[in-house]
Design a protein around this nucleic acid. Structure first.
Length: 626
RNA sequence: GCGCUCGUAGCUCAGUGGAUAGAGCGCUUCCCUCCGGAGGAAGAGGCCGUAGGUUCGAAUCCUAUCGGGCGCGCCA
């Protein structure tokens, strides 16, 4: 690929210099090139001389001159001119005649050209969305869905094997699900509505479909029936958002199989869980310094006498089993966590232990787990690492072994937190949970965008348009930054919408290629790339593998959305300056057809990663009708 | 209090330690005899929150500080 080929060329030049009089063996080796910002600085810039000046012991401009001469001596067909500028930049101008081969390469490789040169082959489990089946997927979770799913596509494009996973708490231990079932039941059986019950139309929708319930149906029955329904609804909504999972994993299965109990026994044997009646709390100061370690004696919190009884011994009235503590403070957590409550019920953390053990089987022998969580879950990270570290620790219960286990856990499990999304409509924030108990569902956002952006399209087409726009909007911003989702921009002002800008570039290419075919023009066998805007477009196209590589490395998938806009812009610039279909210049036309096709492939490739369609034509918005 | 995160154009946000900090929206103009004008060109708009430090060079790295958001349950 272009960039790598250039880097290798420069590396070879440096190698040829090393050991000569002015170039000691200790000279710096790494080579980086960047795009030039303005055309008068050539096509690429190399800052080697600036970086290496110290290790060589000569002034940067002197080093730059040596490097330039060495580069020119290689007589590469790629390079036409090299200038030295500013403090010692090497400005490299490409030779147009050598670029056609790269166009050809894109055409023959197809959308797979986006695969990075250095491909990775890790087996990775990515868990995302994972909201409990007590309501539809909200617009808030939509960000996690878009981010997680595109991250999966990027990781796959970079050569990894990826397993998409969704985890939900469906056990009878889940108080949320319990309350949801109670709420549904109260509608069906005309019982008093529970105090903290779930309101909202979707609860009544579920209830309406469960009117056939046997008269003696209890909460368990309702929980099973209603969560099955909500799961179906979630699957359906996510599918409309082009998100599908390889595994839907229910917590209850871990209890049913006895795996949770087995794991707890294992932890007890290892000495990282016990029933001693205290909780250790570590108070951290600035920079993670341990300020204070307190072992709080356990009191009976189920007795609500909150008058001072600081050192009262636990009463044992309703104690079925002693509290089982995970000593997670051994593994960097700031307090020990409860695995089994005093009444014998197990907490969600206990199932997390069994779950994370099992997770490494998907894909088989997984190298890494990635868990994507919402902004309200970042306090969860330390807990998860502690759970995994407790599982992974080998050897005795020593500080050294525990620290090593924590380090391993942090390496094996990456927890990514996406930040909150604020929805703005009519210039005002639109709440995700409304006062009447209804929530702002992802599927409603998709439909709303589609209806407004394309009022005359069919409802299925509207849903597709809504998914295009919603995915793109979520992905435009870095996942770890707070973002505003401007619904007005996503819908009404669709003329200025970046999604349509990108899709329009694709439709325009298709239109141009159609015109070219009508004129009897064919693709050139050996395309030439000469015009500045042709070169700029090709450079942008060839950047895609680098963008994929970076995104797979640091999870910055939002840069692909930025890239898509830039690529579209490069095409529009090219289109503006370079006429493609011109019967009087058939050779130029044929070369440009190749470039158009390469641009089309790049657009399809990046949109494929973003989960955005590339239609061959766009219907005109009604606003353009006067 | 502690932790995570963000402060960049009027607004929403990009920005790999590099040259004169970018885009979209909004504002002022211009360009269809021409492959789709959902496009292109030009202009105005900035002490990159503040103060130090690291070095040839800092929006970017470090420290401090101010300001917003979120989180710190035997809820998940």
């Amino acid at each position: 690929m272009l960039r790598n080929d250039l880097c290798e060329l420069i590396s070879a030049s440096i190698d040829s210099l090393i050991g000569t009089e002015d170039f000691p063996n200790t000279a710096h080796r790494g080579v980086e090139i960047t795009d030039s910002k303005s055309p008068e600085h050539g096509d690429f810039a190399c800052n080697y001389a600036l970086v290496a000046t110290k290790s060589i012991g000569k002034p940067p401009r002197f080093v730059a001159e040596l490097l330039r001469d060495a580069l020119l001596a290689q007589n590469s067909p790629l390079v036409s001119e090299i200038d030295i500028a500013g403090p010692g930049f090497l400005n490299i101008r490409l030779s147009p005649t050598a670029l056609g081969a790269y166009v050809q390469w894109v055409l023959t490789t197809g959308t797979a050209f986006s695969r990075p040169v250095k491909s990775r082959t890790q087996r990775i489990n990515v868990e995302f969305v994972s909201v409990n089946p007590n309501g539809p997927v909200t617009v808030g979770s939509g960000r996690g869905a878009a981010f997680g799913e595109t991250l999966c596509r990027v990781l796959i494009a970079a050569g990894n094997e990826v397993h998409r996973e969704y985890y939900y708490n469906d056990g009878v231990n889940s108080e949320q699900m319990r309350m949801f079932a109670e709420s549904v039941r109260s509608y069906v059986q005309q019982l008093p509505f529970p105090e903290k019950g779930y309101r909202g139309d979707y609860v009544q929708d579920v209830a309406a479909r469960l009117m056939h319930a046997p008269p003696d149906a209890n909460v368990d029955w309702f929980q099973e029936a209603s969560q099955a329904m909500m799961l179906e609804k979630q699957k359906e909504d996510l599918l409309a958002f082009r998100v599908r999972f390889d595994t839907w994993y229910g917590e209850q299965s871990l209890h049913t199989s006895g795996e949770v109990k087995r794991c707890l026994d294992e932890l007890e044997q290892k000495g990282v869980a016990d029933t001693k009646p205290y909780r250790r709390v570590i108070k951290f100061g600035k920079g993670g310094v341990v300020n204070e370690v307190v072992d709080e004696p356990q009191t009976d919190s189920s007795k609500e006498d909150d008058e001072d009884d600081g050192d009262a011994a636990p009463t044992v009235d309703d104690v079925v089993a002693p509290t089982l503590w995970l000593r997670s403070t051994k593994f960097g957590d700031d307090m020990d966590r409860v695995l089994r409550r005093r009444d014998g019920r197990l907490t969600y953390i206990s199932s997390d232990v069994a779950y994370h053990k099992d997770k490494f089987q998907r894909p088989a022998n997984a190298d890494k787990l990635i868990t994507i969580l919402g902004p309200d879950h970042h306090g969860y990270i330390g807990r998860l690492h502690a759970v995994l570290a407790a599982l992974l620790r080998s050897g005795a219960d020593t500080e050294e072994n525990n620290r090593a286990a924590l380090e391993l856990a942090r390496e094996k499990l990456e927890v990514l937190i996406f930040q909150i999304v604020r929805f703005v409509k009519d210039g005002k924030p639109a709440p995700m949970r409304k006062r009447d108990g209804n929530i702002y569902a992802l599927i409603d956002l998709i439909k709303e965008i589609g209806v407004n952006a394309a009022p005359h399209a069919s409802s299925t087409e509207q849903a597709e348009i809504g998914a295009d726009v919603a995915r793109f909007f979520y992905l435009m911003r870095s996942h770890d930054t707070h973002m505003d989702f401007d619904i007005d921009l996503a819908t009404k002002q669709n003329d200025e919408n970046p999604v349509f800008y990108v899709q329009y570039a694709h439709a325009r290419i298709c239109s141009v290629l159609d015109k070219a075919a009508e004129a009897g023009l064919r693709a050139a066998a050996e395309p030439q790339v000469e015009h500045v805007r042709e070169i700029a477009l090709l450079k942008k196209i060839l950047d895609l593998p680098n963008e994929v590589e970076r995104a797979a490395q640091d999870y910055g998938v939002h840069r692909l959305a930025t890239y898509a806009v830039e690529l579209a812009r490069s095409y529009h610039h090219f289109y503006d300056a370079c006429r493609v279909v011109d019967a009087e210049e058939p050779e130029t036309s044929q070369s440009r057809i190749c470039l158009c096709e390469a641009a089309r492939i790049a657009l399809q490739s990046v949109c494929g990663l973003l989960g955005v369609r590339t239609p061959e034509r766009l219907e005109r918005a009604e606003s353009s009708v006067s």
